[in-house]
Design a protein around this nucleic acid. Sequence first.
DNA 1: CGTCCGCTTGACTCAGATCAAACTTGGTGG
DNA 2: CCACCAAGTTTGATCTGAGTCAAGCGGACG
Lengths: 203, 203
Amino acid sequence: MAADFLAILDKSNASKAISFEPGQLVFRQGQSVRWLYRITDGHIRLSRVLMRGSEVVLARVTTGEILAEASVFAVHYHCDAFAESRSLLQRYPIRQIHALLSGHPGAAVAYSAHLAAQIMDLRTMIEIRAIRRADDRLLSWLRFRSHGNPPSIDGQGIWPSVAKQIGLTGESLYRALARLQRAGKIERPGTKVVLTVRPKNTP
Amino acid sequence: MAADFLAILDKSNASKAISFEPGQLVFRQGQSVRWLYRITDGHIRLSRVLMRGSEVVLARVTTGEILAEASVFAVHYHCDAFAESRSLLQRYPIRQIHALLSGHPGAAVAYSAHLAAQIMDLRTMIEIRAIRRADDRLLSWLRFRSHGNPPSIDGQGIWPSVAKQIGLTGESLYRALARLQRAGKIERPGTKVVLTVRPKNTP
DNA sequence: CGTCCGCTTGACTCAGATCAAACTTGGTGG
DNA sequence: CCACCAAGTTTGATCTGAGTCAAGCGGACG
């Protein structure tokens, strides 16, 4: 659904499937933009390295989502992309994307809507990163990213990169997780994190 | 140029000019989306209020730029917009925008490109906000937002909202400004801030 | 003329960073 | 099957830099 506008290209043989090992580079900041990717399976991390050497995770993209969508009109990729797990990507030549957007009236509108949704997500991330206390920050992120009822999320090996995404060190993040659990705000069966839903009218 | 795709609507009489006083509300989070705005003159601040009551500035939009572009496909505005100075906005009904994007092949592509650029800017803001030391953070923001040669920016009354945009308190921001000046990284003639350009090959 | 802001500086506090150490887990290769 | 290693996870002690509170100045504006 997030990639409706790519369906047309899937029917032609324009795209190609490529797999990546954990830690493997998909593209690097500064490389010229040649492909748009859709994640068939796995997790990709978009990040930049600051002058001091620390890494900022700009986004963590997962199954079904699109990678490098904002780079379609750019000359160079503006951040690094690494596989966080064994991942399978579908790769679309940028030329084909351009042709699709120009040639198909609905595609460009759908693409705009997709980008607009991205902008709102990024603003939400900025809001979350602006929360001072580590517990509140992490809890907001968990609320934002969890799904289901009760809302839950699989934490298998994601915490180090989540920490870099919400602006915490690994240690602080694990401490925050422990505090949230002690406070009864979350539960951690196995590798999962389940948000304990607050009963209504109980502030 | 940022609003090329609005030119067609400017020729028809679809839009209307509206002026705002400093501090006046343009729209509030949760209101249903009725208009897209282009700033003819002035500064608008997009912000949200956190649970603890503090304000996060998500963006500061200025003359020539567009407001609420990401809300075109949304039902409700997702943040508050306030005028920071006496501002003049051009107001376009959302219906007209939709019609323009669907009806005009090039418009949707131009709009996509515009949104993609927004995404890159937002990611840059996330990167800047991730810089730990206040001095480096402010300096990066100044580099990002200044223009001209030598790069400079008019600081007239903007610092309180800049502080909220880069995640500092007013006090910390003024201290950082003072330190940067003492370190010779910036100069402050009048209300301006001028970046002192580092000669090449001098790390 | 008084009030509200923007601006500035100082003293103190505190949450998260940093450094350090240990344990678990999964995978690799002998 | 086990030794080994890398990465994730957990906990403790200490440090640091931005937040907070407080006070004062100056200019804009009614």
